[in-house]
Every structure is written in C-alpha cells, then in structure tokens.
Amino acid sequence: MFIQLMNSLALGMNLFIIAVGLTLIFGVLRVINFAHGSFFMIGAYVLYSVVKRTGDTALGFWGGIVVAMLVLGFIAWLVERFLLRRLYDKEHLLQLVFTFALVLIVGDLVKIIWGPLQHSISYPPGFGGATDLGISRYPTYMLFLILSGPVIAVSLWLILEKTRWGRIIRAARLDRQMLSALGVNVKAVYSAVFVAGAMLAGLGGALAAPRLAVEPGMDALIIIDCFIVVIVGGLGSLWGSFFGAIILGVATIFGTLIFGEWEIVIVYILMVAVLLWRPWGLLGRIEEDRH
C-alpha cells in the first residue's frame, strides 16, 4: 500500500514536470502544444545519447539532463522565433495543426537519428538501490523523482510570484495588449515562456528515461497523460497541474490495482467526471477564451 502510494507520487511528479510546461505555454501563449510530447521524447533521447558516450557516470547522467534541456531550449527558440510567432493571432485550428505538424516531423526525425528500436538507460550511479524509509524500503531514484516535483513547483511558483519576470508573465496572461503598451517586449516574453516550457518537457523526458523504454511513439501517449493532467487541474494553472498530476498518478496506480486492465478506462471516466463537475478543471478559471 505504501509502495503503491509512493509509486503514484513518483509517476505523478514526473508527469507534473512535463505537464507544467504545457500549462505554462497555454497560460501565456494560448496555444495547446501537441508537440510537447515530442519535446519530452527528444529529452529522453538526448539523455540516452549522452549517457551512451560517457558511460554510466554521474556526470554523464546529470550532465546529459542539462544537455537535453539546452537542446530543447534551442529547438524551442528556433520554432517560436521563426514559425510559431506568425500564428498567435490566427485561428486556433492553424496553431493546432502547426504543433501537430511538429509531432509528425519529430516522430520521423527521431526514427531517422536514433533508429526504430527501443533503448534503455540505467539509473544514475548512487540512485540504483533502495532507501530505507522506516516503513519500507523504496527505490532511491523514484524517491528522487517524488522530491523533484515539489522542488520544481515551488521554484516556478517563486519565480512567478516574486520576480519581475514572473510579474510580467502573469500580466501577459491577463492582457497582452496592455503589457505591450507599457513598453514590455511581449515577443521576448512569449519566446522565453515557450523555451522554458520546452525545457521543462525535456527535463521531464530525461528524468523519466530510466523508468521507461526510450522508443518512438512514447510522445503520443505522454501527451495524452499531460492533457489529462492539465484538463483535470485547469488549463494554465500551476498548482492545478500539480494536483492534477498527483490525481492521475494515484488513479493510474490504484486503478490498476483495483480494476486491472480497465484502469485506463477508469482514468478517462474520472477525467470526464471532474469536467462535468467543474468544466474548467479543479483550479482553472472560468473564462471566455473565444476571441
């Protein structure tokens, strides 16, 4: 039971790191980024490449995570600066198909670069074993995943609440025209948010790599999990995706325990139930996002 609870949290916190990037991008740019799962996948693959070259060293693993984030930051910057930027004031359909096109491109590129086969990454040195938590022993890496979630959540929250950048980002969510009138470089804000969101996806992908198989197609499933998290939590809400991720983690692990293979159906029913009760998600704000 305790193990299951911990597993739920580990899964949930990993999902949170990925989903929070998605929600951040939506909150500011008003774009649903289907390529977020692709960013996640790139993160995992980049880490794999780095670790393959360096061997199973601590530096290789942690350095690889940094490299993964930097690569994604750069890719996201290119995408935002030269392509996505032209679509902000266009129809939602165009934005949606744009990000979907990225999914297709990245999906094939990954196959071209890394091949169609499955790869795996071992836990970083020092994290392979289990830690005695008093009640039970628990895998150290999973424990690290559980702790990473709140750390990221609180850091993001501090950045959003306490820094000048955070204030600008929060203002951009409310009224981009006003912000522009106040002399803020809104374009740069959007760029930065998209890059930050993609880096979070890359971080999430790299951190997830040791617990999953790194393979083509991992993007299509994770993106749906992210959508569930942000829909349940409320699109655009930081803490919404935090709690949404925990709920999905618990529903997945305990759903499997109780309902067996029907778990996946239960997860979707749960999501629909939340939306019937609160159409804008648990912490989402009621808003008319039609323009």
Binding site: L235, Y268, I269, V272
Partner: peptide
C-alpha cells in the same frame, strides 16, 4: 468554448479509444 472545447472533445475520444 474554443480550446477548452477542443480539449474536452479530445478527452471523450480517448475515453472511447480506451
């Protein structure tokens, strides 16, 4: 409306898929 509608329809289709 708009993106919320898109996401909710997506959610239901995944329920059907599952």
């Amino acid at each position: 409306a708009a993106m919320h509608f898109a996401m909710l329809t997506l959610a239901f289709s995944m329920l059907v898929w599952s």
